[in-house]
């Protein structure tokens, strides 16, 4: 039914000095699906994402991309594979406009001069393909956009590069009800376009609204990776808080895999 995972991690360990943050973590992401990555504060979500993005090198474990074992030594390697991360603080420049932000660091040029027309066209096409209708002008400064629009621009920026895996770090954390709905809608559309989407969220409603699979981290171990349709709200909450829920999850506190 679902395709082979585009990104798969096996047995990932990661320590910062004496503190082991990730223990033998397995994680897979499938194209066309939204995988929610949940876990309490300090469970290792951000560390895992940063390992995927190449910001932290992994201590041991295997990183497979499209079935092939790869070595990700830095953010450039991850980007080259087609892995884009949209961070919580968005990383947009307020004083630049939408097009300038989307192409930041990867500007199109013709000779020495920036090719503004091509960049504007590509940006427009990307936003259109995401059915974004909330932005009136691509030459608006980002500072004049609402939180939801900024999130949209940040996501569109990640999609622009024909990425295969898009990781969203709490995209709705700072948004109101209507804007959250907008962004979740966009997240769903990304997956429907065939991208593999990883959604980090604390909000169970969001998780159940858009995700196909849920991966729950508990104290640096992968408690369970399950289909959203097969679990209930309370089971996921138990996985997050206790690492297990009935048959699901870690069977002892020492990190035996389920």
């Amino acid at each position: 039914m679902s395709q082979a995972p585009v990104l798969e991690l096996r047995g990932i360990d990661k320590s910062f000095g004496p503190v082991q943050v990730l223990h033998d973590v397995a994680f897979s992401v499938h194209p066309g699906e939204v995988t929610a990555l949940v876990g309490d504060n300090g469970a290792g979500k951000s560390t895992l994402v940063k390992c995927i993005g190449g910001i932290h090198p992994i201590d041991s474990g295997e990183y497979f991309f499209e079935g092939e074992k790869v070595h990700v030594g830095g953010p450039r390697d991850a980007a080259a594979l087609g892995v884009e991360i949209v961070y919580q603080d968005l990383a947009l420049c307020d004083n630049l406009d939408i097009v300038q932000n989307m192409f930041l660091g990867r500007e199109r040029r013709s000779g020495l001069v920036l090719d503004e027309a091509t960049m504007e066209e590509l940006a427009a096409r990307t936003l259109e393909s995401l059915s974004v209708r909330t932005v009136t002008s691509l030459r608006q400064r980002v500072s004049s956009l609402s939180g939801g629009q900024r999130q949209t621009v940040a996501i569109a920026k990640a999609v622009l590069w024909n990425s295969k895996v898009v990781i969203l770090d709490e995209p709705t954390a700072a948004l109101g009800v209507a804007q959250t709905a907008q962004v979740l809608d966009l997240v769903r559309r990304l997956a429907d376009k065939g991208l593999a989407v990883v959604l980090i969220s604390h909000n169970m409603n969001d998780v159940f609204a858009v995700s196909d699979r849920i991966a729950a981290l508990y104290l640096g171990r992968m408690a369970a990776q399950v289909k959203t349709s097969e679990v209930t709200h309370s089971q996921v909450v138990e996985l997050i808080t206790a690492g297990r829920s009935g048959e699901l999850g870690l069977q002892n506190g020492n990190g035996a895999t389920p």
């Binding site: 990383a91 300038q100 930041l104 500007e107 020495l112």
Partner: peptide, 23 residues
């Protein structure tokens, strides 16, 4: 009109964003 100029504005606007964009 140049990428260099754009990067100057980007670093002035949000140095962290510029760094993450590979500048």
């Amino acid at each position: 009109r140049t990428a260099y100029g754009r990067h100057i504005y980007a670093v002035g606007g949000n140095a962290e964003a510029a760094r993450r964009a590979g500048i």
